[in-house]
Computed example of a mutant assay.
Amino acid sequence: MKIYSLSGPSGTGKSTSALQFAHDYEIQAIIDDGLLIINGEKAAGTSAKFEKNTLKAVRCAIFEDEVHKEEVLQAIKSHEVESILIIGTSDKMTKRIATRLQFGEIHHFYYVQNIRSEKEIRMAKYVREVQGKHVMPVPYRQVEQNFFKRLIQRGKEIFSTNQVKLGETTIVQPDFHQNSVYIARPVYLSVLDHVLQQHEMLAKFEVANLQIEGIPQMRLNLYLKSPVHYDVAHNLHKLQKNISEVFLHHFGIEPEKIDIQLKGIK
Rank of each mutant, 00 (worst) to 15 (best):
V172K: 02
Y4F: 15
L85A: 04
N235R: 03
H234G: 00
S117L: 06
Q102T: 08
V127C: 02
G214P: 07
L224P: 10
Q173D: 10
L151C: 04
E82I: 08
L224C: 04
I260H: 06
L224N: 04
I3W: 02
E41P: 00
E120G: 00
L85K: 02
I87A: 01
I260G: 05
P216Y: 13
H68V: 05
N162P: 03
Y188N: 08
G264T: 06
P137T: 04
S160T: 08
Y126V: 03
A75F: 04
V143W: 09
M93T: 12
I62S: 01
Y188P: 00
Q74V: 03
S5A: 14
L248F: 15
V207G: 07
I86C: 04
K238I: 08
K149P: 01
E51S: 00
A22H: 04
L192T: 01
A98R: 05
I37M: 11
F103A: 08
D33P: 00
G45S: 12
D24Q: 12
T54G: 03
A75W: 02
E66Y: 06
P186A: 08
I62N: 02
I87Y: 01
D175S: 12
L262R: 10
H68G: 05
D193K: 15
R141N: 13
F50N: 05
T46V: 10
T161D: 12
K133S: 08
R154H: 11
K204A: 10
T54W: 10
H199G: 00
V191M: 14
V81Y: 05
S10A: 13
G132S: 11
I86H: 02
I31D: 04
T46W: 05
Y140H: 14
G264P: 08
F50D: 03
S7R: 03
G8C: 07
E129P: 03
V187D: 03
K2E: 13
Y4P: 04
L192M: 05
R185P: 01
S180I: 15
G214V: 12
E144Q: 13
V67E: 12
Q113W: 14
E70Q: 12
I76L: 15
L73I: 13
S47Y: 07
G88D: 08
V246N: 09
K14V: 01
H229M: 07
F251Q: 10
T54C: 06
K14E: 00
S17D: 01
E70V: 09
I115M: 00
N242V: 04
G13Y: 10
T89K: 09
Y4W: 13
E70D: 09
H23Y: 14
R116G: 00
A18R: 01
L192G: 02
V191S: 13
V195D: 03
I3R: 09
V135M: 09
K49W: 09
N114I: 03
I86F: 07
Q131C: 07
T54P: 01
H237D: 11
Q153T: 07
L55T: 15
R219T: 15
L101T: 14
H250T: 11
K95Q: 14
Q131S: 08
H177C: 09
S226K: 11
Q211W: 12
I30E: 01
V228C: 01
V112Q: 01
P216D: 13
E213I: 15
G252P: 06
